[in-house]
Simulated scan of single mutants.
Amino acid sequence: MRDRNGNGAQAPDRPLDVAVIIGSTREGRIGADVARWFTERAAKREDLVLDVIDLADYPDFPGSYPATPTGAMTRFTARIARADGFVVVTPEYNRSFPASLKQAIDFAYDEWHAKPVGYVAYGFDSRGLYAVEHLRCVFTELHAMSLRDWVGLHLVGESPGPHAERDERAVTALLDQLVWWGLALRDARARRPYTS
């Protein structure tokens, strides 16, 4: 078995490379705080290696899709290609996800194929459900495997309490599914290249 560059054998039990993508670039956002909360929990696992990709760190993404990829697009796409799976951290804006996230998703294509995608969403009463449902449609079109379980955080007007335990359980369920699908699909891609 060879790595994605064709060099040497991969250890089948090596940790899963997971890109955690912070989808909001809005000034005053709390997406980075939510991502930090999530990655603190995910980092306790020995079966994951995390790469946090904050879209706010790409101010040189083009405003419109160019004919030739820019350096920022190429760097972003390379990080997506390295990942075995993804966790998208997104707010819910007007019953969907931010335009900044859609733009970044569209910069890659083959790099998403046959890899699992999990979601950590936040918002008001819906806990980001509508953003997640829209993302599921987008990632299905990109031949990615959306995980069933997701983490939804209510961040407006809810005091600390019993929901904290529920959120912890949701993180565990998401990560367990991500690892299972990530390892299965990584093995499948190594044995047989994915075709769309």
Rank of each mutant, 00 (worst) to 15 (best):
A188C: 06
V179E: 09
Y109K: 03
S126W: 00
K115R: 07
R95T: 01
D33V: 04
D110F: 13
E111Y: 13
N7I: 15
M1D: 06
V49W: 06
A114T: 09
A190D: 13
L183R: 15
G118L: 03
V34L: 08
G118M: 10
V34Q: 11
R41Q: 11
D13S: 09
D84T: 01
F139K: 00
G157F: 15
H163N: 12
D106R: 14
V151A: 06
L183M: 13
G85W: 00
A173E: 14
C137R: 15
R186M: 05
G63S: 01
P162G: 10
R75I: 02
Y93M: 03
Y194H: 10
M145G: 12
K102I: 12
I21S: 14
T90E: 07
V117K: 00
R192S: 07
M73K: 08
S146G: 08
R26W: 04
R79L: 03
R166W: 12
P69L: 02
K44Y: 05
A99N: 10
V151T: 07
F107G: 03
A188V: 08
D187C: 09
V117M: 08
G161A: 02
P160E: 13
A99S: 10
P91L: 04
R41F: 08
T70C: 06
T77V: 10
L55Y: 05
Q103M: 13
I53F: 15
T172A: 14
A173N: 15
V117L: 08
A184P: 06
T90G: 04
D84M: 01
A56K: 03
P193D: 06
D17G: 15
V132F: 00
P12D: 13
L135K: 07
V18L: 14
L55C: 01
F86D: 04
T140Y: 11
Y194W: 14
A19L: 02
I80W: 01
